[in-house]
Simulated scan of single mutants.
Amino acid sequence: MKFAVIGGTGLIGSQVVNDLNAAGHEAVPHAQSTGVDVIGGRGVEEAVAGADAIVNLTNSPTFDEASPAFFQKSMDNLLAAGTKGGVGHFVVLSIVGVDQVPELDYYRAKKLQEDILAAGPIPYSIVRATQFMEFVESVLSWTTEDGTVRLPATPIQPIAAADVALAVAEVAAGSPLGGVRNIAGPDVFTLDELGRITVAHASDGRTVVTDPTAGMFAAVKGDVLTDKNARLSSTRYADWLA
């Protein structure tokens, strides 16, 4: 099979390309750096021409109120090009619990992306993943000041990017789901607990304080960012840190 991997040079996309090619498929990475502009439309038709499937791993450059417009325009352009090119499967990567946190602009934007895909003319699959292990340090940096990290006790279920990529590649190479597949890491932590584990591993002197009002994840209520019924990956956070 031939795959057009849009956003194929990023953290997940580059690994999806490698995984698909290793499985004997032809996966071609496309991004702004390769001349494909999903907003302006430049190079989009050429990128998906002849592809059996589109794997869309592009992301909004911001997490704010501008993000819905990014997903609306990029999906419109990719769906139009995919329909013209006769693409038979369209895959996007989304977030576990994305429909449960309307307070966050970015989550509303990702849910919009899902809705556009589901209403579109191309058979589709949505892979929802929990929070990436690779992003934990960035989350800590958002609320760090003078050596103190403030984090809410939001339950999360971190998953390694390599495991996400494998799951996306598996779904892309299969028949369209016509729905959602949830994937997650094997263990659930509260975010402040995960912060303490990360800081202890780094041995950099930071202190983690539990603060229910701190950072983006303070808006998340309950355990909606976890899923005990998801397909669980095998990589544990302690092993990933090591």
Rank of each mutant, 00 (worst) to 15 (best):
G179Q: 11
A27T: 09
G7R: 04
V98H: 14
A153L: 13
N77F: 00
M75H: 03
G24C: 08
L93E: 13
V220M: 11
A129Y: 12
P186T: 11
A162R: 10
Q131G: 12
N77P: 00
L78Q: 01
A169H: 01
V55K: 00
S94L: 14
T130F: 13
K2C: 01
T83H: 04
L151D: 14
Q32F: 02
V28D: 02
Y237T: 06
T213K: 13
I12N: 06
Q72G: 07
Q72C: 02
T144P: 08
A169I: 03
V149A: 07
A66D: 08
D211K: 03
P158M: 12
M216Y: 12
D204G: 00
N18C: 02
A49S: 08
M216L: 15
A218Y: 14
R236G: 10
E137L: 04
I12S: 06
A202I: 10
L194E: 11
A22L: 03
A49R: 00
L104W: 10
S141V: 07
N21L: 02
E26I: 09
G7P: 05
G147E: 11
I126P: 14
E45W: 03
I183F: 12
P176D: 12
G88H: 00
E114P: 14
E137Y: 09
G7K: 04
G24R: 01
S67R: 01
G97A: 12
G97I: 13
Q100L: 14
V164G: 15
V96T: 15
A80Q: 01
F135L: 10
Q157K: 08
A51D: 08
G174Y: 02
V149L: 07
E114W: 11
P212G: 12
R42N: 01
N56A: 09
F217G: 12
A202F: 11
H89D: 07
V16N: 00
F132W: 06
G41Y: 01
V38Q: 00
G10C: 04
L117P: 09
K110H: 12
V44N: 03
I116Q: 06
I95R: 07
I12V: 15
E170Q: 04
T207M: 10
V164H: 12
L232I: 15
I6Q: 02
R108N: 13
V199K: 02
A49M: 02
N182D: 15
E46V: 03
S233H: 11
S233I: 12
T62L: 01
P102W: 09
E46K: 00
L225W: 14
V92H: 08
Y107A: 14
E45K: 00
G8W: 00
S125P: 08
V209S: 05
D146C: 10
N21W: 04
K221Q: 15
P102I: 09
Y237R: 03
D115S: 10
T83N: 04
A230K: 09
F71V: 04
A219L: 14
I159H: 07
L57G: 03
